[in-house]
Lab assay of single mutants.
Amino acid sequence: LELTLRVGDKTWHFKDVDEEFVRHLEELLKRGAHEREIEEIIREWLR
């Protein structure tokens, strides 16, 4: 999967994204996660 995600003024483009990561992001967005929380999840995933 490829994913382009825009949060606030930042845009990330990922290739070979894990479906579990996408589901986790979807859940965060559904519950109205704040920009900082989403950025933290992305940084963790990139490690």
Rank of each mutant, 00 (worst) to 15 (best):
L1D: 12
L1K: 14
L1Y: 15
L1F: 14
E2H: 09
E2F: 06
E2G: 07
E2A: 05
E2L: 05
E2V: 06
L3H: 06
L3E: 02
L3P: 02
L3Y: 10
T4Y: 09
T4D: 06
T4V: 13
T4E: 12
T4I: 13
T4G: 02
L5H: 01
L5W: 02
L5P: 00
L5Y: 02
L5K: 00
R6G: 07
R6Q: 15
R6S: 15
R6I: 15
V7M: 05
V7C: 06
V7K: 01
G8C: 02
G8R: 01
G8T: 01
G8Y: 02
G8V: 01
G8S: 02
D9E: 09
D9A: 05
D9R: 03
D9Q: 07
D9F: 03
D9I: 03
D9V: 03
D9T: 07
K10H: 13
K10L: 07
K10I: 11
K10V: 12
K10Y: 10
K10F: 10
K10S: 08
K10P: 00
T11C: 07
T11L: 12
T11P: 00
T11H: 10
W12P: 00
W12L: 03
W12G: 00
W12C: 01
H13W: 06
H13V: 14
H13E: 05
H13T: 11
F14D: 00
F14S: 00
K15E: 06
K15Q: 09
K15L: 08
K15S: 06
K15Y: 09
D16I: 12
D16W: 14
D16R: 13
D16E: 08
D16T: 13
V17I: 10
V17F: 04
V17P: 07
V17Q: 11
V17L: 04
D18K: 06
D18Q: 07
D18F: 03
D18Y: 05
D18N: 09
D18A: 09
D18V: 02
E19F: 15
E19A: 15
E19W: 15
E19D: 07
E19I: 15
E19P: 11
E19T: 12
E20F: 10
E20Q: 13
E20D: 14
E20M: 13
E20P: 15
E20G: 15
E20C: 04
F21M: 05
V22H: 04
V22S: 02
V22Y: 07
V22Q: 02
V22K: 05
V22T: 03
R23K: 14
R23G: 08
R23S: 10
R23L: 12
H24R: 11
H24E: 13
L25R: 00
L25A: 04
L25F: 01
L25C: 10
L25G: 01
E26W: 08
E26Q: 13
E26I: 11
E26K: 12
E26S: 07
E27K: 10
E27D: 15
E27C: 06
E27N: 13
E27F: 08
E27H: 10
L28T: 07
L28G: 03
L28S: 07
L28H: 07
L28Y: 05
L29P: 01
L29K: 04
L29I: 15
L29Q: 10
L29W: 05
L29R: 04
K30S: 13
K30H: 13
K30W: 08
K30R: 13
K30G: 09
K30F: 12
R31S: 15
R31Y: 12
R31L: 13
R31V: 11
R31K: 14
R31C: 05
G32M: 03
G32T: 03
G32C: 04
G32Y: 04
A33F: 09
A33C: 09
A33S: 08
H34K: 13
H34P: 15
H34Q: 14
H34W: 05
H34D: 14
H34C: 05
H34T: 15
H34N: 14
E35L: 10
E35Y: 11
E35I: 12
R36M: 14
R36L: 13
R36S: 15
R36D: 15
R36E: 14
R36A: 14
R36Y: 14
R36Q: 15
E37G: 03
E37N: 02
E37D: 11
E37V: 07
E37A: 07
E37S: 04
I38K: 02
E39S: 06
E39A: 06
E39N: 12
E40H: 10
E40G: 10
E40W: 08
E40L: 10
I41T: 11
I41F: 15
I42G: 00
I42Y: 10
I42V: 06
I42H: 08
I42N: 01
R43Y: 15
R43L: 13
R43I: 13
R43S: 11
E44K: 07
E44Y: 05
E44V: 07
E44P: 00
E44S: 05
W45E: 04
W45Y: 15
W45S: 04
W45A: 06
L46S: 04
L46A: 06
R47H: 15
R47N: 13
R47I: 14
R47S: 13
